[in-house]
């Protein structure tokens, strides 16, 4: 298996606060990787550095064997990195289905100014079908025509995931997708992601505080603390690492909550 994402020695500081120190994380094709760490460890900052939302002080990002360190955010997205946001980011004043339609249109690059002018810019039947299929998968079919402001937090999360999926990424960065979802929905989301992933073969990099989800869903794990990697390796082993326990898990026994159905 080849690495699709290779980030090496990424560092970032904010006016005196060292948020990331020499973090190198690789993701293989089709792999599910977890990234955990205490609050403020730098996980979100790392995502933002990968995507170019923040410019890292040092370090390079390679994606599909191509150096993307200098590309602007939208180019990286077009190259195949999808993401969701820790703090939910939806397009206000837009319905759920339109969210996906916009993403679909950007992805299939069918839109153009001139096509708009001659009236060929409206959503086409096949695009709507694809969106509805994804809505169905995420259990949002009934909410298609709701404006996103009318959604609860958890429903909004799912819309974000759906929007990212529409761009058919080869790597999906998920920042706490389960926050705001209850356990059943978290489990359902994990199942759905697995299914879609099996079908499309994209890789996932997951940031999450729901340790059960991490344990269950990811194959490999990186642990950040104070901006540096303190452990990495296969998930089950890494979770047993003593440093991880003291820095992050506390008394939590992995798997001690209700088992996932």
């Amino acid at each position: 298996m080849t690495a699709i994402l290779e980030s090496s020695r990424i560092a970032k500081s904010f006016s005196g606060i060292q948020a990331l120190t020499d973090v190198s994380i690789d993701v293989m094709e089709g792999e599910r990787v977890g990234l955990i760490g205490p609050n403020g460890a730098g996980k979100t900052t790392f995502f933002n550095c990968l995507l170019g939302v923040l410019t890292p002080d040092t370090g390079t990002v390679r994606f599909h064997d191509r150096d993307i360190s200098e590309l602007p955010v939208h180019k990286r997205a077009q190259a195949g990195i999808g993401r969701t946001f820790q703090r939910i980011e939806l397009f206000s004043d837009t319905t759920v289905r339109e969210h996906l339609l916009i993403a679909e249109r950007v992805h299939n690059e069918r839109g153009s100014f001139w096509k708009d002018l001659i009236g060929r810019g409206r959503p086409q039947a096949d695009e709507i079908d694809r969106c509805d299929a994804v809505l169905e998968l995420l259990g949002l079919a009934e909410l298609g025509d709701e404006p996103v402001e009318a959604l609860s937090l958890g429903q909004g999360r799912l819309v974000e995931v759906g929007r990212a999926l529409m761009t058919e990424p080869s790597l999906l960065l998920l920042d706490e997708p389960s926050s705001g979802l209850d356990r059943e929905e978290t489990a359902a989301l994990a199942t759905t992601l697995r299914e879609i992933q099996a079908e499309k073969g994209f890789a996932i990099l997951l940031v999450e505080h729901d340790v059960d989800l991490v344990a269950d869903f990811t194959e490999r794990l990186y642990v950040l603390d104070f901006g540096s990697l303190i452990a990495e390796g296969p998930t089950a082993e890494t979770l047993q690492h003593p440093a991880v326990r003291t820095a992050y898990l506390g008394t939590l026994e992995v798997g001690d909550q209700e088992a996932m159905p």
Partner: peptide, 14 residues
């Protein structure tokens, strides 16, 4: 509301 949302397990304990 959503007490433990986004908090690391060790903080949730606290």
């Amino acid at each position: 509301d959503e007490l433990s949302l986004g908090l690391a397990p060790i903080v949730v304990d606290e």
